[in-house]
Design a protein around this nucleic acid. Structure first.
Length: 572
RNA sequence: CGGGGUGUGGCGCAGUCUGGCAGCGCGCUUGCUUUGGGAGCAAGAUGUCGGAGGUUCAAAUCCUCUCACCCCGACCA
């Protein structure tokens, strides 16, 4: 391809709308343009990157036995109402009506659609297992789109769905997808970590995410990782081993209400009463689906709201407002406690149950209660892990400690169980003629977000450095002067040779100064650059250079193809 | 939805407080020169100052309403 024949609108200046380096590079490199908040247009270079990555995904999905189909973007709302997600997904589900006033949703994921597709056709265990996938546009009306393609509202996703008759069969299908995912990300030049994750609105039994660990600001999630045993989990999901040594008193002391003037926060109370944070129990009031609930964690810990939400079975969860706190506890913020709190369920973290004679808010202004003991002074509605893991906590699987790392999610896998098949009646007959719901799994890969995630890793101060597998072209040819006949002829010749050898080439045939071409070449980041200028051409040579290296090799005009092939082999 | 901010030529911005010719840099067009890391000179073109309404002799500037976008939070791949 020739630069003047395609459309690569590079920008010199930084774009204020982009915070992340990867987003900035895509805009400046002429890969994408924004149409509206969270909605992007893919320009020719981006289109090629998407095509490259999609091809890798297709090849590996096909290799694992999955079959490609294509489903609709729209789906009758009725099906989403049947599975309950019409309610549970909330406002991010884009809803609309057609001219007949029939309600539709724009799919952000296709469990409902595919289960509907399959339920009529799959009747026998003999037709299973099956794995269907598509690469398609998704729409999620995110509250706050940001980071370019990383959190757009419209994006492209590969989504696969497995159907199995038995749990054993499902485990095999799930394992195949995990393997395919590892191969896909490796081929795209990414080292990913597989972590345990929360299932969220997707439902089902268990889930994993494939995370790219990054050092830039691009991380959107925190991953807890154990170096020793390999335990890795999204922070939302992570469990941990408590390493604080608690001295338990032998006897329960009588409770006592004490005045704590001006001491509402943990810091203020511990300073005032001269105690350690872990001798306190925090009582946080939440509103779960508009009903109050109290979360009790040890004073030195924070609440993991995802764990709490799951413990409560709630769809919406948010901290109570100061007014609501006064309404339910009778005291201002900072003095809530479990003792005497009426009509509010108490969700208690197990770490609280190990404490004796601890301190809680008194549900009265400027007062706390000391020497409180669970079961004697209040009863837990439910004891369940609701603490947020943090760096330095003990690994739940071994005796080491957890590290916190920043990551970008590029893929996910969900063990759906029979949630969708039961709701929509996708059932099969086993060998004995008994009817069962199909066991399902669902597997996503962000087709547009992954290449941007790649850029959080592959760049330098001048621009992008694509891994060769997803670069829009492998080679960029730069004739330094378009007015120089010898240079142009040499460039055309090399262009033809490379093209004939099946190598993808972009030739910068613009009538621009060398500096402009070099800078744009560095910005758009093709792996190999061939410079054609008088200096080398006098010796019958051109200059071949990898974007990722400083070294320049002078190559004879007729040896360019093998030199490029050889260089490409060495590159990432 | 809550908090903060921004809308001025294709891009980046100044001008707004204190109303008085709509500007700067880059880019763009033409010509000449130049050509190994974002050229020089000369001549040009380009704006409903986000939109609507109001105040005023006069509004980018003041007032009211409204729309879009960005950042922080909640949500989320």
């Amino acid at each position: 391809m020739r630069w003047t024949q395609t459309y690569i609108p590079t920008l010199r200046q930084k774009q204020t709308e982009a915070e992340l380096i990867s987003h900035q590079l895509l805009l400046r490199g002429g890969y994408i343009r924004k149409l509206a908040s969270g909605i992007y247009l893919y320009l020719p270079l981006m289109q090629r990157v998407i095509e490259k990555f999609s091809r890798i995904v297709r090849e590996e999905m096909n290799r694992s036995g999955a079959i490609e189909i294509h489903m609709s973007v729209l789906c009758p709302a009725e099906i989403w109402q049947t599975t309950g997600r019409y309610m549970s997904v909330g406002k991010e589900l884009m809803r609309m009506k057609d001219r007949h006033e029939h309600e539709f949703v724009m799919c952000g994921t296709h469990e409902e659609t595919i289960t509907t597709l399959v339920r009529g056709e799959i009747k026998s265990y003999r037709q299973l297992p099956m794995n269907l996938y598509q690469i398609q546009v998704k729409f999620r009306d995110e509250i706050r789109p940001r980071f370019g393609l990383m959190r757009g509202r419209e994006f492209i996703m590969k989504d696969a769905y497995t159907f199995d008759a038995t749990q054993e069969s499902f485990d095999v299908s799930y394992g195949k997808m995990l393997d395919a995912y590892s191969r896909i990300f490796t081929r795209a030049g990414l080292e990913t970590v597989k972590v345990e994750s929360d299932t969220g609105a997707m439902g089902g039994k268990a889930a994993h995410e494939f995370m790219l660990l990054v050092e830039t600001d691009g991380g959107e999630e925190v991953i807890m990782i154990c170096d020793k045993c390999g335990y890795a989990a999204n922070r939302e999901k992570a469990t941990f081993r408590d390493t604080v040594k608690i001295k338990a008193d032998k006897e329960m002391k009588p409770t006592e209400v004490v005045d704590t003037p001006g001491a509402a926060t943990i810091e203020e109370v511990t300073a005032f009463l001269k105690v350690q944070p872990y001798q306190l129990v925090k009582t946080l009031l939440y509103m779960a689906d508009n009903k109050p609930a109290a979360a009790l964690v040890r004073g030195d810990r924070d609440v993991n709201e995802i764990k709490l939400k799951n413990a409560l079975g709630a769809i919406e969860l948010e901290l109570a407002t100061p007014a609501q706190i006064e309404e339910y506890t009778g005291a201002p913020v900072g003095f809530a406690g479990p003792v005497g709190l009426k009509d509010v369920p108490l969700i208690v973290d197990p770490m609280v149950t190990n404490l004796t004679n601890f301190i809680v808010g008194a549900n009265a202004d400027q007062q706390h209660i000391i020497n409180v003991n669970i079961d004697r002074d209040f009863k837990a509605t439910k004891v369940i892990d609701i603490s947020l893991a943090r760096e330095g906590d003990g690994c739940p699987m071994c005796n080491s400690t957890l590290d916190a790392k920043s990551g970008i999610e590029v893929g996910n896998t969900f063990q759906l169980g029979t949630k969708y098949s039961e709701a929509l009646g996708a059932k099969f007959l086993d060998a004995e003629g008994k009817e069962h719901p199909i066991i399902m799994g669902s597997y996503g890969i962000g087709i547009t977000r992954t290449p941007q995630a790649v850029l959080e890793k592959y760049f330098d101060e001048k621009g992008i450095i694509w891994p060769k597998t997803i670069a829009p072209y492998l080679v960029e040819i730069i004739p330094l002067s378009m007015d120089n006949k010898a240079q142009v002829e040499a460039a055309e010749k090399i262009y033809d040779q490379l093209t004939e050898a099946g190598i993808e080439v972009l030739m910068d045939d613009r009538n621009e100064r060398p500096g402009v071409k070099f800078n744009d070449a560095d910005l758009i980041g093709l792996p190999i650059r061939i410079t054609i200028g008088d200096k080398s051409l006098k010796e019958g040579k051109v200059e071949v250079k990898a974007r990722s290296e400083d070294k320049v090799e002078k190559i004879g005009l007729d040896s360019v193809v093998p030199a490029v092939v050889k260089l490409a082999e060495r590159l990432n």
